[in-house]
């Protein structure tokens, strides 16, 4: 009898606890399930996007092997438009930019190189994207824009390439003394066995040492 009473009491306290907290528990559980589901769904969606973009990118590689510029343009446009959040969008933009540049369409090329810079994932890649965009700006004679990009912080690994391009820009502006300094820096920073070394040397000599 005493036992029953105790049980009854426990039951009552449980009931009142449920009344107070039950709502929160259910809500919490629901939120948790939704979050897990959403996370899973997002993962699934990302993987699906990546797989589809990868497939398209393989076709880009095949088109490049055939020198089929029309196919390259079409396929890279598809990747940039439908899969902008994948790893393939920046490379697609570069390739499209290169093709447009070769065809003399600097304006499209610039937009595409800018797109690649915006989409570059890791910091190492972003610095590469900046370098390539700067090369295009030099072609557009936007010297200040190019120098601004090249003036941004970069890893020591890129120092040689950045300095070389800076030299090219300054040489194009006929700022010989500064160009020489940039080329000298490039010679210092490029790796010992870098094939670009002898090229920079020739450029430097071309400016009278």
């Amino acid at each position: 009898m005493a036992l029953d009473l105790e049980e009854q009491e426990q039951l009552d306290s449980l009931k009142s606890w449920w009344k107070q907290n039950g709502k929160w528990l259910v809500t919490g559980l629901a939120v948790f399930l939704l979050a897990v589901g959403g996370w899973r769904g997002w993962q699934y969606w990302t993987a699906k996007q990546a797989a589809e973009a990868s497939m398209l990118f393989e076709r880009v590689m095949e088109a490049a092997a055939r020198d089929d510029t029309r196919a390259i343009k079409e396929l890279t446009a598809q990747i940039m438009e439908h899969y902008p959040r994948t790893a393939y969008s920046a490379p697609a933009a570069w390739l499209a930019g290169r093709v447009n540049y070769d065809a003399g369409d600097l304006k499209s090329a610039r937009a595409q190189f800018q797109f690649a810079l915006d989409r570059a994932r890791d910091p190492s890649l972003e610095q590469l994207a900046r370098l390539r965009l700067a090369a295009l700006l030099l072609e557009e004679k936007d010297y200040d824009g190019a120098l601004r990009l090249l003036g941004q912080a970069h890893d020591p690994a890129y120092a040689g390439l950045y300095a070389q391009l800076k030299g090219d820009v300054l040489a194009a502006q006929d700022r010989k003394e500064e160009a020489r300094a940039a080329y000298r820096l490039a010679l210092e920073k490029l790796g010992e066995e870098s094939p670009l070394k002898s090229i920079v040397e020739i450029k430097l000599d071309g400016l009278g040492g």
């Binding site: 990118f57 590689m61 490049a64 790893a87 393939y88 920046a90 490379p91 570069w94 390739l95 930019g97 290169r98 540049y101 190189f113 690649a116 890649l125 590469l128 390539r132 090369a135 295009l136 030099l138 072609e139 090219d168 040489a171 194009a172 090229i199 020739i202 450029k203 000599d205 071309g206």
Partner: peptide
């Protein structure tokens, strides 16, 4: 390798200047 290696752009003006030097 293809994705990151094919985007290289060598400015025509620079190439021309270099060719003249050669």
């Amino acid at each position: 390798q293809f994705a990151y290696g094919e985007g290289t752009l060598v400015p025509a003006s620079g190439a021309e200047r270099f060719t003249r030097l050669l």
